[in-house]
């Protein structure tokens, strides 16, 4: 939520949810994928149980004493 969200915004969002969930319900049984305009979203985080997908381990001499952090 944001401080700028008014009651009207909440009501509009719920009215959109009413339409969209109605569409979702009408797709019960699995034709949702066919109604996507593009590829579905993917998981953001890689599965660490799959070692082939782990990021490469940084080598020790990549660091020079002080580690700089950025926000």
């Amino acid at each position: 939520m944001s401080f700028s969200h008014t009651d009207a915004d909440v009501e509009y969002t719920l009215s959109a949810y009413r339409e969209v969930l109605g569409l979702l319900k009408s797709g019960d049984g699995g034709d949702v994928a066919a109604r996507l305009k593009g590829k579905p979203v993917e998981a953001v985080f890689r599965k660490v149980s799959n070692f082939n997908m782990k990021p490469a381990r940084p080598r020790l001499n990549d660091f020079h004493g002080i580690i700089f952090f950025s926000g």
Binding site: T13, A16, E19, L24, V32, R35, P40, V41, E42
Partner: peptide, 27 residues
């Protein structure tokens, strides 16, 4: 009810059509 990421994508797609972006989802 189906592949959760597909359901999420579909709901997001339809919400964006209605001018709503960024509600929080988890799967």
């Amino acid at each position: 009810a189906g592949q959760p990421l597909e359901l999420k994508s579909y709901v997001q797609q339809e919400l964006i059509k209605r001018g709503i972006s960024g509600p929080g989802f988890t799967t």
